Computed example of a mutant assay.
Amino acid sequence: MGSWHRLRLVGAFGEQVQRTAKEFVKCGLVQVVASDAHTLKNRGFVMTKAYQVLNEMDSQYPERFVTNARNLLNGDKIKARRIEVPRKQRKHWLS
């Protein structure tokens, strides 16, 4: 998950996009949260907020993502979770 998804994780592009990013995390499709840290005049550095969101989702997520980022930078293997099929969301309350 690069900065594109990081910004989505914290809700910078709306609620629906944030829900989708969180679903990606929950399903095991995301292994690293990172920032490309360019164009800072137009975009704030929100890594702290991203890790707060991860912690709110599951208190084990921040350490998992920090470890994966460290391992990636060191050329070590990262731990990937088993990919889970996303739960089907109802479009209407009657369905």
Score class of each variant (00 low, 15 high):
Glu63Arg: 13
Phe24Ser: 01
Thr48Asp: 10
Gly14Lys: 12
Val46Leu: 14
Asp58Ser: 03
Leu54Gln: 04
Val25Asn: 06
Ala80Arg: 15
Ile83Gly: 02
Arg90Met: 14
Val66Cys: 15
Asp76Val: 00
Leu7Ile: 08
Ala37His: 14
Ser35Leu: 10
Thr67Trp: 08
Ala69Val: 09
Arg6Asp: 06
Pro62Cys: 07
Thr67Lys: 13
Ile83Gln: 11
Gln16Thr: 09
Ala80Val: 08
Leu9Ala: 07
Lys49Arg: 15
Glu63Lys: 10
Asn55Glu: 10
Arg70Thr: 03
Leu54Ser: 03
Gly28Ser: 11
Ala69Asn: 13
Arg82Gln: 15
Ala69Glu: 10
Arg19Met: 10
Lys22Glu: 12
Gln89Phe: 05
Phe65Leu: 06
Asn71Val: 07
Glu63Met: 08
Lys49His: 11
Val17Met: 04
Ser95Ala: 11
Phe45Arg: 14
His5Glu: 14
Arg6Trp: 05
Leu9Asp: 06
Val85Thr: 10
Pro62Leu: 06
Ala50Cys: 07
Met57Asn: 02
Glu63Ile: 08
Leu29Cys: 09
Phe13Ile: 03
Cys27His: 01
Glu15Gln: 09
Asn71Arg: 15
Met47Phe: 08
Ser3Glu: 15
Lys77His: 12
Arg81Tyr: 14
Val25Pro: 04
Thr20Gln: 06
Leu40His: 10
His92Arg: 15
Ser59Thr: 02
Asn71His: 15
Leu94Ile: 07
Trp4Ala: 11
Asn71Lys: 15
Glu56Arg: 01
Gln52Glu: 15
Arg64Thr: 11
Ala37Arg: 14
Arg6Ser: 13
Thr39Lys: 13
Pro62Met: 03
Leu7Phe: 08
Asn42Trp: 07
Asn55Leu: 01
Met1Asp: 05
Val33Phe: 02
Met1Arg: 05
His5Ile: 05
Asp76Trp: 03
Ser3Arg: 12
Ala34Ile: 00
Arg70Ile: 06
Phe45Asn: 08
Arg64Val: 12
Glu23Asp: 08
Glu15Ser: 03
Phe13Ala: 09
Met47Arg: 04
Lys91Ser: 10
Lys77Trp: 00
Trp93Leu: 12
Lys41Pro: 09
Asn55His: 11
Phe24Gly: 00
Ala69Thr: 13
Ser95His: 12
Ser95Lys: 11
Gln60Phe: 08
Gln52Ala: 11
His92Gly: 09
Ser3Trp: 06
Ala50Val: 04
Phe13Thr: 02
Tyr61Gln: 02
Glu84Leu: 12
Met47Asn: 08
Asp76Ala: 03
Gln52Asn: 12
Val33Tyr: 00
Asn55Ile: 00
Gly75Glu: 09
Val85Lys: 10
Leu9Gln: 08
Lys49Asn: 11
Tyr61Pro: 01
Ala80Lys: 15
Val46Trp: 05
Phe65Ser: 05
His38Met: 12
Tyr51Ser: 02
Gly2Phe: 03
Asn42Pro: 01
Gln52Thr: 09
Arg6Ala: 09
Asn42Met: 07
Lys79Ala: 14
Asp58Gln: 05
Ser3Tyr: 02
Gly14His: 13
Lys22Leu: 09
Arg70Asp: 02
Gly28Trp: 09
Arg70Pro: 00
Arg64Ile: 14
Pro86Trp: 00
Arg82His: 13
Ile83Lys: 08
